[in-house]
């Protein structure tokens, strides 16, 4: 494994990265319980992708850069400043949801304050948006970059191609990170693409492409950090493919046992980034038993408080249905 010291990350940094990953996981687990208890109608899961999400977000300038996260990016948005309470308000479709005021499904993120573009459900429309932000950064000599994520299945969409090509032609400060979790709902990677790696597609656009271990947050951090440096130097966009595995069903309405086996999932769990990064931190004596139990307790308390607050919070009032169609 890459050493965090070699990346100029402190022990506190990596501990914070782990805390964010663990928060995303524990939040996700709680929403499954809430869904099965009939308290929230729907969820999409981030389990298995927290390492790449937090690793990538940590490599950004979180005071400056723009992001267009896709619907599984709970790790990204937590690292960027969305709180557990914010996300729980979204899960319950409450008026206090900062992403959409309860208008959109869970996982549809957006916050102008955090420079996080609002996302929709048709996949990959966010890629041209992120490229447009990159164009605007370039036009304004803004020392910020635009970071966008999507799933591997989404790289088949026209908007991926159109956006990536545009960014490459104009050498825009854009990072496109594909979170390859092996499945587009039920359809496995080999029925989505015939190329060996998603990052091979970068060749066709004339941009930098790289495939990395998405289970290793330090590898992702390193790749995104370098991509960011290239972008700011005017060397153009990068296509980074982070490979991991989707550990849960696609959503609360999906039954993944209809298209894959428990053995396959169990095998993937051994590579789970949350698990392997924990081992790394334990081995480095950064994550002690005491720190870990305090961390778990603090996260649990935060999620409990957020759940309670969100359950009690009001839904948007009916008069607001008509607001925000036009200015």
């Amino acid at each position: 494994m890459i050493n965090h010291e070699d990346l100029q990350l402190t022990d506190d940094d990596v501990l914070e990265m782990y805390r964010l990953m663990l928060t995303a996981r524990r939040f996700d687990e709680r929403t499954w319980l809430l869904n099965r208890a009939g308290k929230i109608p729907f969820l999409v899961s981030c389990q298995g992708q927290e390492a790449q999400q937090v690793g990538a977000a940590y490599a950004l300038d979180r005071e400056r850069d723009y992001t267009a996260p896709y619907y599984r990016d709970f790790g990204v948005v937590l690292a960027l400043g969305m709180t557990v309470k914010d996300l729980m308000m979204q899960a319950f479709a409450k008026a206090a949801d900062p992403n959409s005021g309860g208008r959109q499904m869970p996982g549809h993120f957006g916050s102008k304050r955090l420079r996080m573009l609002s996302g929709s459900s048709p996949v990959t429309t966010q890629v041209p948006h992120a490229v447009g932000v990159g164009l605007a950064c370039q036009m304004n000599n803004d020392q910020a970059i635009s970071f966008v994520t999507l799933g591997e299945g989404s790289t088949n969409q026209g908007d991926f191609h159109e956006g990536a090509n545009f960014a490459a032609v104009h050498k825009l400060p854009v990072i496109i990170m594909v979170e390859n979790n092996q499945y587009a709902i039920s359809v496995p990677l080999n029925k989505q693409v015939a190329c060996e790696k998603i990052s091979d597609r970068a060749i066709g656009y004339g941009m930098y492409g790289e495939t990395i271990d998405g289970n290793n947050p330090l590898a992702v951090y390193q790749a995104i950090k370098k991509a960011r440096d290239r972008a700011l130097k005017g060397e153009g966009p990068s296509l980074i493919e982070a490979v991991s595995y989707r550990l849960t069903a696609h959503s609360s309405d999906d039954d993944d046992m209809t298209y894959r086996t428990q053995e396959e999932i169990d095998q993937a769990k051994e590579q789970d980034g949350l698990h392997t990064f924990r081992q790394y931190l334990v081995k480095k004596n950064i994550l002690t038993d005491q720190i870990e139990s305090e961390m778990e307790a603090a996260i649990k308390a935060e999620i409990n408080q957020a759940t309670e607050a969100a359950e009690k919070a009001p839904y948007p009032s009916v008069e607001t249905l008509y607001d925000g169609v036009y200015q």
Binding site: T125, H129, L135, S146, D159
Partner: peptide, 16 residues
């Protein structure tokens, strides 16, 4: 590529 013309425009508009 028309979707990019509009989509990139939307992104730039979001920036300001």
């Amino acid at each position: 590529a028309e979707s990019a013309i509009v989509g990139v425009g939307i992104g730039a508009a979001m920036y300001g």
